[in-house]
Simulated assay, not measured.
Amino acid sequence: MRLIEGQSIELDSRGLSRFGSAYWDAIQTVPFEKMSDAEQREYLLETIKKEPAFSAYTSRMQAFFGANSIDDSRRFVETIIPRPHHRIPVFEVFSSMFWTLDMNWLDYVTDHGTRAHNSREYWYAAISNHNPEVGERRPPLLEVLMQLPVQVGKIVAWIEPGEASSMDEKPVTATQNPVVALRLEQTHSRD
């Protein structure tokens, strides 16, 4: 998706975001054991999101994703596979409702029960410091889940190839965070 200043990003005719449309058909029709890891992750997240404790959140299938800062956007660029070899604009994005959640919970590869627990930690907005108790640890990787529609503002920075942080992080697939569009301001109260 190419962003343009002044653009309004809205749900499609099926009520999905671009991210959601990439997963929706699979998580609705493919047997769980035949889904890819990413499809299983999104299926599990959507199933757990239906629990009453998480009803205030927008669905990831109806969301736009970003980061809290330009530095965080650099960290996201570092995790994209294939690694971009071109300049990436960082836009400010305005949303009436958004939540900051730790993506690390989604990347820990574990058994189904632990994955369900980690998905709940994601929706609880828990920070993954000191997790997992055994195995690879890394700093929290916070994403901003924005309810659509969102309004794209001005370009606030450019990330040059190779400029992203040198932190040694586990890469994620490009579909997890296909667009780096950041610096949020809440345009309405959450109440």
Rank of each mutant, 00 (worst) to 15 (best):
V134H: 11
R138I: 01
I127A: 08
I127N: 10
R138T: 09
A157W: 06
L141D: 00
P140I: 06
K154N: 15
L142E: 07
K154M: 13
L148D: 02
V144C: 12
L145T: 10
V150R: 05
E136M: 10
V144M: 13
G162H: 05
E136S: 11
N129E: 08
L141H: 14
L148K: 03
I159W: 10
P132L: 02
R137V: 09
P140S: 08
E163D: 12
S128P: 05
V152K: 10
W158D: 06
N129Q: 06
M146C: 15
N129M: 03
G153Q: 09
Q147N: 11
P161K: 08
E133T: 03
R137F: 02
N131W: 06
V156P: 02
G162E: 03
V134M: 03
A157Q: 11
E160Y: 11
M146L: 12
L141C: 05
R138S: 14
L145W: 04
L145Q: 15
V144A: 11
S128Q: 02
S165W: 01
P149T: 01
V156Q: 13
P161A: 08
E136R: 15
P149A: 05
I159V: 15
P140E: 06
L145Y: 00
E163K: 09
G162D: 04
W158Y: 14
P149V: 00
P132N: 02
H130G: 09
E136N: 09
L148S: 05
H130T: 01
V156N: 07
H130V: 00
L142H: 14
E163L: 02
L142T: 06
R138G: 11
I159N: 07
L142Q: 12
P161V: 05
L145H: 12
I159K: 10
H130N: 15
P140M: 09
A164H: 15
I155N: 07
P161F: 07
L142S: 09
V134W: 04
L145R: 14
G153H: 08
P139I: 03
P149F: 01
E160Q: 14
E163Y: 03
E133Q: 07
E143H: 08
I155S: 10
V134G: 00
G135R: 04
M146A: 15
N129R: 07
E136T: 12
P149R: 01
Q151H: 14
K154F: 11
W158N: 09
V156F: 04
P161D: 07
L142W: 10
G153S: 12
M146W: 01
L148N: 04
N131M: 13
P149N: 05
Q151I: 12
I155A: 07
L148E: 02
N131D: 00
E133W: 05
L142V: 07
E163G: 01
A164L: 01
N131I: 00
S165R: 05
H130D: 15
M146D: 01
E133I: 03
Q151L: 15
S165F: 01
R138W: 04
V156L: 07
L141T: 05
I159L: 14
V150T: 08
R138E: 13
P132H: 02
I127H: 03
S128W: 02
L141K: 12
Q147D: 11
G153A: 10
L141G: 01
G135Y: 04
E163A: 14
V150F: 09
